[in-house]
Amino acid sequence: MKIALVHDYLTQRGGAERVFELLCKRYPEADIFTSLYDPEKTINVGDRLVNTTYLQKIPGATKYFRLIAPLYFPAFRALDLQEYDLIISSSTSFAKAVKKRPDAKHICFCHNVTRFLWDTETYLREYSDYRYFAPLITKVFQAMRDIDLKYAQEPDIYIANSTTVAQRIQKIYGKPAIMVNYPIDTSNFIFSDTKDEYYLASARMISYKRLDVIVEAFNWLGWPLFISGDGPERKRLEAKALSNIKFLGHVSDSQRKDLFSKAKSVIVAALEDYGLVPVEANASGTPVIAYGAGGVLDTQIHGKTGVFFKRQTPESLQTALLESGGISWNYENIRNHAVNNFSEQVFFSKVERVIAQACI
């Protein structure tokens, strides 16, 4: 069976790209396709050929890839995938549009519906550089919705990473989705049942991550907090943070492992579609304190692997922090929860059952 692996664009390294990297490793004989490829800023695919679209020839496209949104659908439609029996796409937007042979199968790992089209206001708030062009961008995005709906019918099977995303796919695209929680490489995390006194937040510093809520809560409590990551919100957050809060910026993989394993808890204040950080924390034996909505409801057990807070406010987070302090955590059980439910082995056993059913 000849397999094609397709991803929206390989110009960054986020959760979606890490999942695609796992797919590339699992299917080493598969051919890789994407719209744009910047090997220095994305996943490592070794010496494998990455096939790109004509967009790759546009000067600056890999850097300003968000500015050419209307061009992606025709670029993916132009890819010739007629020789492939199985197409596995990894998409939050465009890759689901690829064409296949009538007898071939297309399985789409849909990380979300095309969010900038269906939640434009949040998208523009997150990427404030584009706010000045909001009237024009909004009109363009509205025109693209019909195209997105049309090409959303191309995949034969959707796989969603969470209940939340599966519900969105059904609501907006009218397509059922099989829910399979995405995995982490549990061997990449260090287990420790000895915790230091600091708390940890690890996230891109953009508005929807709600790091402002975390900073305000810890300003009031005075407890030590480390924040790893970078982004456009960093200066604003640093300006309001007191001396008990330390901004670490980008950290190496080895530093990140150590931070996760020794933290008293990892804090997540965003409404995440899925969210790998809580699972990574658990794989380190570390409990999570998270806003109780979205993907964490699929991955966390209140009182066993973490604590939920009900509102994205400093006061609600403070209540959860105090509750967490009264729990006698079993760090080994937290680690086992991650290994038993979110390992690559568990993930691919589910995925390959789906593929086998699709290809009968």
Rank of each mutant, 00 (worst) to 15 (best):
P74V: 06
E238H: 01
F348C: 07
I184C: 06
R26Q: 15
Q345E: 15
V6N: 06
F191W: 05
P278K: 08
Q255M: 11
I289Q: 04
V351Q: 00
G46Q: 11
R48G: 10
I88E: 08
Y158A: 09
N336V: 12
K63N: 12
E21D: 11
V346W: 01
H7M: 07
I267A: 04
D31F: 03
S162P: 07
S162N: 13
E272L: 07
L23E: 03
K2N: 15
H111N: 08
L10Q: 09
A239V: 01
H111K: 03
L259Q: 05
L81N: 03
V288H: 05
F218V: 02
K350R: 13
T319D: 14
P176C: 11
E272V: 06
I32D: 02
A95N: 09
G174D: 11
Y54T: 14
L149M: 09
Y84W: 04
L71E: 09
F73T: 15
G306W: 07
K209L: 07
R236S: 15
A177N: 05
T305E: 10
Y123V: 08
H302L: 05
Q170C: 10
F189K: 09
T163W: 01
I334D: 04
I178R: 10
Q312E: 12
I107Q: 02
L237S: 05
F116N: 12
R168W: 11
S128K: 15
H111R: 03
A281R: 00
V339Y: 01
Q312M: 09
P39L: 06
N333R: 14
Y331A: 10
L297V: 07
K150S: 14
A16K: 03
S284E: 08
T163C: 11
N333L: 13
A177D: 07
E154M: 13
K63P: 00
A358G: 04
A283G: 02
K195M: 07
L55H: 05
A95Q: 05
K41C: 12
T299P: 07
I214P: 00
A4P: 01
Y27Q: 08
H111Y: 12
I137H: 02
R77E: 14
V45Q: 03
